[in-house]
């Protein structure tokens, strides 16, 4: 059982929790994730390890309320235990010194982006980070990201904070202005798709971190399969990061929507209780 030792609200729907997991804190690398289950009837859901403290033996997770499982998790308080937590899972991010890195995070995707930004910076890169959200309240982790970025550009759809516009407009601006050697994008699938199209135009190597639907997270079931470069890969063991220019995003988006009616039913059932 893993005890929650800290909890912080980033917004109405986004919560950061710090949870005891000493072994994972020690063995995790940037880009790794965990699988979490809340309650005996709980579902196994993947969440990126946003940070870790080896001394305290804790990891932090940033969770956005989406449906039943994330709501149950966000409703836990300090002192409560997470029923099951396993990891670290997935391949860690490959981080080298390449020059200038453009990091693009959308919505709750900023949480998994944070440890990657930190690692790129520590490896001696210039890091320009673009944070995108629908509106001001949904911009998260801005201060933390600033700590590890040379420059941060905030973009909102409605212009309520930072610049008004889509993330790709911000990207174009940076690419026009300076040489970008690598790009990393994490966020909603549709955002990643357009980020990838943008960098492809400029031939900038790009990785995307995919949030496929998972069950076990250990390569056992294939729920998380995606097509990359025409080949089927498992996001949980081969990813979650892949060459963004080779990902079949349309298939990925269709797969993400594969349980919509069932998820809605579960949510209604949950709310009734």
């Amino acid at each position: 059982m893993n005890k929650i030792v800290e909890k912080e609200h980033f917004s109405e729907r986004v919560v950061k929790i710090v949870v005891e997991a000493p072994l994972i804190a020690k063995s995790r690398k940037p880009g790794n994730f965990v699988i979490v289950r809340v309650g005996e009837q709980g579902e196994r859901i993947p969440l990126t390890i946003a940070g870790a403290d080896i001394q305290k033996g804790t990891i932090s997770l940033v969770v956005q309320k989406m449906g039943v499982s994330t709501t149950k998790l966000c409703d836990l308080e300090v002192g409560d235990c997470i029923t099951d937590l396993v990891g670290p899972l997935g391949q860690p991010t490959e981080i080298h010194q390449v020059g200038t890195v453009l990091a693009c995070g959308g919505g709750v995707g900023v949480a998994p982006l944070l440890p990657i930004v930190e690692a790129y910076k520590k490896a001696g890169n210039r890091v320009v980070t673009i944070l995108a959200a629908r509106s001001k309240e949904l911009v998260i982790l801005e201060d933390e990201v600033r700590k590890w970025s040379d420059e941060v550009i905030v973009m909102t759809d409605d212009g309520s904070y930072g610049k008004k516009g889509l993330i790709t407009e911000g990207m174009e601006e940076v690419i026009r202005r300076e040489k970008v050697d690598e790009c990393v994008t994490i966020g909603p699938a549709i955002m990643m798709k357009f980020c990838a199209l943008t960098t492809k135009k400029h031939a900038i190597p790009t990785v995307a971190s995919l949030n496929a639907i998972m069950v076990d997270g250990t390569g056992m079931c294939g729920a998380c399969r995606v097509t990359v470069g025409g080949k089927t890969r498992f996001t949980c063991v081969d990813g979650p990061e892949f060459d963004a220019h080779k990902i079949d995003f349309d298939e990925m988006m269709a797969r993400l929507a594969g349980y919509k009616p069932e998820e809605q039913e579960k949510m209604e059932h949950f709310l009734q209780q």
């Binding site: 309650g39 009837q41 709980g42 579902e43 196994r44 039943v68 499982s69 149950k72 069950v215 076990d216 056992m220 079931c221 294939g222 729920a223 399969r225 995606v226 097509t227 089927t232 298939e251 269709a254 797969r255 929507a257 594969g258 579960k266 059932h269 949950f270």
Partner: peptide, 27 residues
């Protein structure tokens, strides 16, 4: 990779391990 196509491991795990046959299960 269309929706609705499972490996037997996924299909059986969802039902046997995660209890997806039961309405109270979140899976």
């Amino acid at each position: 990779n269309l929706n609705g196509i499972f490996s037997s491991n996924e299909y059986l795990t969802r039902v046997n391990l995660m209890g997806a046959d039961n309405v109270d299960s979140d899976t």
